[in-house]
């Protein structure tokens, strides 16, 4: 989605997003674990960062979040490949869903109007729900979780991700978008 193609800036954005989100993902899983759901957290704080990076820089921010959560779930916690890939893909899809909604509704990431805030919160809620549905349905189909945990998982992702993203992402968008929009990588020009 970036207009600049691929280069050092795109790598930097992806790497920094991944580097920031990796420790946050690790501690989110440790701090607010959901019993019975592998690699789940009730307050998914890294999403606050990679959602914002995705709104600013497009797919590169989402890719950073994907790399961070995949490594956090895989390398450090030793979950199976299925769980890394499933969770990591969910965290890749979710910010892109929010971005598509934001684009479709022509909202401004600077959150200047009440409508921008509404679009932001609604897009985050829908993206978190999509992420939860994706991750838990794949888990269910592969026999990683049982049916009652599907509901808990979807609800946990919906509430936990939404709360974290709105709490962290809103002030970041409000405070930093004015600077970020000077970047040639900013996708809203």
């Amino acid at each position: 989605m970036a207009k600049e193609g691929f280069g050092i800036k795109q790598i930097a954005v992806t790497a920094v997003t991944a580097g920031l989100c990796l420790p946050l993902a690790l501690f989110a899983i440790i701090l607010v674990p959901i019993p019975g759901l592998p690699a789940a957290s009730g307050f998914w704080i890294p999403a606050g960062f990679y959602f914002v990076m995705t709104l600013w820089f497009g797919v590169w921010g989402a890719l950073g979040g994907h790399i961070a959560t995949t490594i956090a779930m895989g390398y450090f916690f030793g979950y199976t490949l299925h769980i890394w890939v499933d969770g990591g893909l969910g965290d890749f899809i979710a910010p892109l869903v929010a971005l598509v909604i934001f684009k479709a509704l022509k909202a401004n990431p600077e959150l200047k109007t009440q409508r921008d805030y509404v679009v932001w919160v609604v897009s985050v809620m829908i993206a978190s729900l999509v992420c939860g549905l994706w991750v838990q349905t794949v888990h269910l189909l592969f026999g990683v979780i049982t049916w009652p945990f599907w509901w808990i998982g979807v609800l946990t992702y919906f509430i936990g991700d939404t709360m974290a993203i709105v709490t962290v992402g809103t002030p970041l968008l409000k405070a930093l978008t004015a600077y970020v929009k000077q970047s040639p990588m900013y996708i809203w020009k």
């Binding site: 930097a12 954005v13 920094v16 920031l20 946050l24 704080i45 970041l172 405070a175 600077y179 970047s183």
Partner: peptide, 19 residues
């Protein structure tokens, strides 16, 4: 332009630290 990214990444890292 490089300063923009330094500034941005620094603020994001600070927010992560506070958290």
């Amino acid at each position: 332009q490089a300063y923009l990214y330094m500034f941005l990444f620094k603020v994001l890292a600070e927010v992560a630290l506070v958290w």
